[in-house]
Design a protein around this nucleic acid. Structure first.
Lengths: 202, 202
DNA sequence: ACATAAATTGAACCAATATTCATTTTATCT
DNA sequence: AGATAAAATGAATATTGGTTCAATTTATGT
């Protein structure tokens, strides 16, 4: 005999999975990431440690799901912000602004996506570097287009895109980790200018 | 009664400390850094695990010493390479070339200084970010000088320096971790150009 | 309300690794 | 060479954190 879950139970389970993911996000975003043990995550989510394994096969599965989710949120926002533009520079700038806005308002996401003090978790590191590489890949597409349109000089766009993302990441990270809120408006314009000039925007 | 160490013993001890540090360097630079356990380090250094603790208070002390040492080597090289130049741009370029050369010839150093470390070692991460911040600080000094000389436009040099280092790091890292040796000469020139243009070199 | 499926619990288990310490080996001094 | 200080050893210990599972609680269907 098989029992069927009621709507109420399904909702409760979904909510629990959500709570686990949120707890993991919060704990992973903290300065001392060592605290993101299964026990701590379960506690923060308000469940017993064993319960965790009813929702995720193992810790790797959680990390994987969480990173995919966060990255998707970022890409969705970027897509939305870029939509109004056709000019290559505008699109790049919109991308940067979308990232800045998201990371400023959700610092925990930024710490997880950009920070360089990763976990002693193989899956985390792999996934993480996949994401950075994907951001570089997307940037490269824009750069190739800009060259196509002769808006920037010929260059190794793989390298440029890597530099572009690296510069951006480092600045956002410094931003997030600094206590004194630097002058956002100036810093903001500085990194955007740096990157666009770096490409050779004439 | 206190015995006095002979020269021979002192030398042997120095050599052992050296061996431990070298073993740690090599193991930490490997892709799978998980292998850098005290046991593995001791084994590679040719000593018993317990002996390690006669040379370093604990693992943190080892990491600390090692990072300081590597960073000093890098700074010494940079200093030497910059010596011939007085022009700000030349100095910056010399710095980048020094870094590239060092990192290319000693990939293990680069991995340790620039790469993500799956070590959940608090000391490692702290030290590591200290080093990056110091590199940014040194770069900022150069940028302020360039502005002073009106060679680049006014800008938030803290942010620019951060972007500069971030771009550079990301490119070197991609370089190191890629298997196919991309065209060094082009990549090399691309990142240098990106950064100098980014600053607004006219 | 009863029987059984499903979900939950948290203590126990296990693996990995840093650190200690009783014992052994080597070095120093008379 | 004998006595003892110093160094070295590696098995034992401690700790941390992921995972399992027998026991308990809750949900479902008659």
């Amino acid at each position: 005999m098989v029992y069927h879950k009621t709507e109420k139970v399904l909702e409760k389970q979904q909510s629990r999975k959500r709570k686990i993911l949120n707890a993991a996000r919060e704990l992973l975003a903290e300065k001392e990431m060592g605290n993101a043990s299964i026990k701590a995550i379960a506690k923060k989510a308000g469940i017993a440690t064993g319960t965790f394994y009813l929702y995720f096969r193992d810790k790797d599965a959680l990390i994987d799901t969480m990173l995919k989710e966060i990255y998707k949120e970022l890409l969705d926002l970027i897509k939305k912000e870029r939509a109004p533009y056709t000019n290559g520079f505008d699109k790049l700038e919109a991308t940067m602004k979308a990232c800045i806005n998201m990371f400023m308002s959700k610092k925990n996401l930024a710490r997880i996506l950009l920070d360089l003090t990763p976990q002693n978790n193989a899956v985390f590191n792999t996934k993480f570097s996949d994401i950075i590489n994907d951001l570089i890949r997307l940037t490269k597409i824009d750069l190739d287009e800009l060259i196509e349109q002769k808006l920037i000089p010929e260059q190794d766009t793989q390298v440029s895109a890597t530099a572009f993302v690296g510069a951006f990441r480092e600045v956002i990270l410094a931003w997030i980790n600094s206590d004194e809120p630097l002058d956002a408006e100036i810093a903001y314009q500085t990194i955007i200018n740096f990157n666009l000039r770096g490409l050779g925007k004439s």
